[in-house]
């Protein structure tokens, strides 16, 4: 399969990446992937790329210094509010 149709299908694959490929909107994509090795490999690479980035986003921690500053501001704003109430 070549040309526009193929390109559109791959764009759809990109959109549905991560969705359940057994769901009805994905059935034509799934069917194509079963027949087309190059597309299957391409989609697999995209999936692995996304999975690695998801993992990266889950690993991030707030630096302690940044939290200390934030908590100081949170508690300081309470003191300021009290000051205004007086």
């Amino acid at each position: 399969m070549k040309g526009k149709h193929h390109s559109k299908l791959l764009k759809d694959i990109c959109d549905f990446l991560g969705s359940d490929l057994d769901s009805p909107p994905c059935s034509s994509i799934k069917e194509h992937l079963e027949k087309c090795k190059n597309c299957e490999i391409y989609v697999d690479k995209l999936k692995k790329t996304v999975a690695l980035y998801r993992k990266l986003s889950m690993d991030t921690k707030v630096p302690d210094r940044v939290n200390r500053e934030l908590f100081a501001k949170i508690y300081f704003s309470k003191d300021k509010d009290k000051g205004r109430e007086k």
């Binding site: 193929h6 791959l10 190059n38 391409y42 690479k45």
Partner: peptide, 11 residues
């Protein structure tokens, strides 16, 4: 996408 089909892809 055209090039994708002109040469075998390595997984």
């Amino acid at each position: 996408f055209d090039r994708l089909h002109q040469e075998p892809q390595k997984s």
